[in-house]
């Protein structure tokens, strides 16, 4: 191993040497002296390069990162809060919409459904058990009254008519009960003058504050019923 090569590798890296180099250095005092020199030089270089590090640098680094990630977390929390609020808001709207909006699109559909639902409660042979006075008392909340009794009134009471308070009257018909609904005007629900399904038929009349709906079997003379109501009813302001 030649001298120049050894000198070069020691200068390049004083700490790294292979066996051949170690042997060569051991056997030659001049080389050993050179190694010692370079090791001393390296110590000096290390000492010179070891510039003082600002004392607070370590803390600064940790503080800066802590602040940065805190800021990040804060904005994350804010975003999460905003998202939660949005979800709650939409949920509220949906519930509101589902609870309080009309399930049926028009008066007819609802009236028929209502009659169907309660058909079993009434029989055409039931006796009349509602007086004109108690009927008119109930009518008062719709700002209307009947002048005289017409037909046989089997039943008269308040009903939920698709979310709004209404009066449900059941008269004895020719073969089956005839239902009359007094329903406050509702802008959401579509008014239809005539409607029917397979069995039932209905007519609606629109007054100032209320709709009067008559629903009965197709065989019932609904026009007559409607006329009778129309002639008998008086609306107050």
């Amino acid at each position: 191993m030649d001298d120049l090569h050894i000198r070069r590798s020691i200068l390049a890296d004083p700490n790294a040497r292979d066996e051949a180099m170690t042997e060569a250095i051991k056997s030659d005092p001049a080389k050993q002296k050179f190694v010692n020199e370079i090791e001393a030089l390296d110590e000096k270089i290390f000492s010179a390069m070891n510039v003082p590090v600002p004392e607070d640098l370590c803390n600064k680094l940790i503080l800066r990162q802590t602040l940065a990630s805190h800021q990040q977390q804060k904005s994350k929390t804010r975003v999460r809060l905003a998202m939660a609020a949005s979800v709650a808001f939409v949920l509220g709207l949906t519930v509101n919409f589902m609870m309080f909006s009309s399930t049926y699109k028009n008066l007819g559909d609802y009236a028929i459904a209502h009659v169907d639902h309660e058909a079993s409660h009434f029989s055409n042979t039931d006796k009349a058990n509602v007086t004109l006075a108690s009927l008119n008392q109930k009518m008062a909340s719709f700002k209307g009254s009947f002048d005289s009794t017409f037909g046989t009134l089997i039943f008269a009471d308040y009903c939920r008519f698709d979310g709004s308070k209404s009066l449900h009257l059941v008269f004895q018909g020719e073969s089956s009960p005839v239902n009359v609904f007094i329903v406050p005007n509702d802008e959401e629900i579509e008014f239809n003058a005539k409607f029917s399904n397979d069995l039932l038929e209905g007519r609606s009349l629109n007054f100032n504050h209320s709709n009067v709906i008559v629903v009965g079997d197709k065989s019932e003379p609904l026009n007559q019923w409607q006329e009778r109501i129309n002639n008998n009813i008086t609306w107050s302001i």
Binding site: R8, S9, L11, A12, D13, P14, E37, I38, L41, D42, K44, I45
Partner: peptide, 16 residues
């Protein structure tokens, strides 16, 4: 890299 390290130390050695 080794050449540069050699030159770097050599320069410093000469300076010292």
């Amino acid at each position: 890299v080794m050449t540069r390290l050699f030159r770097a130390r050599n320069q410093l050695k000469e300076a010292v």
